[in-house]
Design a protein around this nucleic acid. Structure first.
Length: 432
RNA sequence: GCGGGUAUGGUUUAGUGGUACGACGCGACCUUCCCAAGGUUGAAACGCGGGUUCGAUUCCCGCUACCCGCACCA
């Protein structure tokens, strides 16, 4: 079932309210790049903070790292990206379909059925090339990482040497990755520069199934924390033919995005593919030696991999709501409170009454100190301010009126039902 | 990459071979005792580059970006 929210509504709101802009827009844009505005970056970080807190800080079996984006090119040779990311594509001269050469059987076009009418293969390497150092030659060649995972695998030994954790344990990382996609599509869904939140979870090979199932549960809980409705999430057990060759099981968590149902995140059992590759390439042992003296082994890996932008999009699409207040259409973002870019907005009921303004600024400063993401708003009239805060998903609005001056109470207005109640100023912090 | 479409203030739109209308939004001032009220006023647009033309936002060509379909997504 497709979502009822249109992609263009999301794009328009993101632009209008300062969440997400086209990258390099003023120069005509750059395909597949997006910039985050003041509210967007806050929302994005809130999601990332929640991820880090949930999977790193709140657990004692997962260690955080941040690896460099530029890596030794041997990393990509060992991981298979230099060859694997380098897909020869051919074009059917009859129907113009562009296809991966290795997907073609018996020289027959799977689209139109024509046999033997293909162009010469062309190479499409999805990794962005760059040069490290002053010279531009084969030796200085490097790539922007196309995934964050390798930055974890290359630090597996470092983390084991520093902490010697009991197995199973994981290493988590958030960071940018870059893929020179043939075509970027669907707003921030598939862009050329994007951010991942990934964990490589190292397990004994005999226990992978049990640990994999635990991860399914942990992921479900996290998606719930993001406020994503369960009926829009679909767990797809990826059939062998569609899995990466190293993966023995993959579950794609798909979401009903505005454009279509598509992958939100992947959970893959990667076996010992990556550590074994490093061991082979470097000659260094990736074996884990259990403290109880039992047989050493190369750990197997379970990888939950989130796309940050996809999470942002799913959160926005889920939060986007239209209802009616006094017969007027109202657009608001029903964001979970812990994700909202602005937690509370403070207004004087009337901005031409200095005593109200003075008091409102006092309350604003107090709350700002307490929560940080607090906005002062005295534009237009009170109704306008409520609607504006609705549209950026601010869960609470505090209004200072004449009663405030008399008894130190304020109006606390709720975004979702527009209901308001009076609260003592000194009880405000705990009411939010 | 292929095919199709679109491109006018922040958003949404009208329109024209003689540089452009409106709405909403935004700023200022006034007004306003709780849900986009009102008044005055201000800033703000023809995606970029060529060509044709006395003159191009408009016609033509190229490019860019986005949207739809296909392909791709290791």
């Amino acid at each position: 079932m497709a979502s009822e929210v249109k992609l263009e509504d999301i794009v328009s709101l993101c632009k209008r309210r300062g969440f997400i802009y086209q990258g390099s827009e003023i120069y005509g844009g750059l395909s597949g790049t997006w910039d985050y505005g003041p509210l967007g970056v806050r929302l994005k970080w809130n999601i990332m903070d929640l991820w880090w807190k949930t999977f790193v800080d709140d657990r004692d079996d997962i260690y955080g790292v941040e690896a460099a984006i530029l890596m030794n090119k041997k990393v990509w040779e060992a991981s298979g990206h230099t060859t694997g990311f380098n897909d020869p594509l051919v074009e059917c001269q009859n129907c113009k379909a562009r296809l991966r050469q290795d997907h073609i059987e018996k020289d027959k076009c799977p689209v139109c059925g024509t046999v033997g009418k293909f162009s010469e293969p062309r190479q499409f390497n999805m990794m962005f090339k760059t040069n490290v150092g002053p010279t531009e030659d084969e030796n200085s060649l490097s790539y922007l990482r196309p995934e964050t995972a390798q930055g974890i695998f290359t630090n597996y030994k470092n983390v084991v040497d520093s902490f010697y954790p009991d197995i199973p344990f994981g290493i988590g990382q958030m960071g940018k990755a870059f893929r020179n996609e043939i075509s970027s599509r669907d707003f921030v869904f598939r862009s050329r520069e994007f951010e991942q939140m990934e964990i490589e979870y190292f397990v004994h090979p005999d226990t992978w199934k049990k640990e994999f199932d635990k991860w399914v549960k942990d992921i479900r809980a996290f998606l719930d924390e993001l406020g994503l409705p369960e009926d829009k999430i679909h767990e797809l057990d990826v059939p062998e033919a569609d899995r990466a060759h190293y993966s023995k099981k993959t579950i794609d968590f798909e979401f009903d995005f505005p454009h279509k149902r598509d992958e939100l995140l992947g959970l893959a059992y990667r076996t010992d593919y990556d550590l074994a590759n490093i061991q082979k390439a470097t000659g260094k042992s990736m074996q884990y030696r259990p403290k109880d003296g039992s047989e050493p082994f190369v750990p197997h890996v379970i990888e939950p991999s989130f796309g940050v932008e996809r999470a942002v999009m799913a959160v926005l699409a889920s939060a986007y709501t239209e209802d009616e207040v006094d017969g007027e259409k109202r657009i608001f973002l029903k964001l979970p409170e812990h994700l909202a870019p602005v937690k509370v907005a403070v207004s004087p009921l009337l901005k031409n009454k200095p005593e109200l303004v003075k008091k409102a600024k006092e309350v604003y400063k107090t709350l700002k100190k307490e929560f940080g993401n607090v906005m002062y708003d005295d534009n237009g009239n009170i109704g306008k301010r409520y609607r504006r805060q609705d549209e950026i998903g601010t869960p609470h609005c505090v209004t200072i009126d004449f009663d405030t001056l008399a008894d130190d109470t304020v109006t606390l207005r709720n975004r979702d039902n527009t209901k308001q109640k009076r609260v003592k100023i000194d009880r405000l912090t705990e009411s939010l």
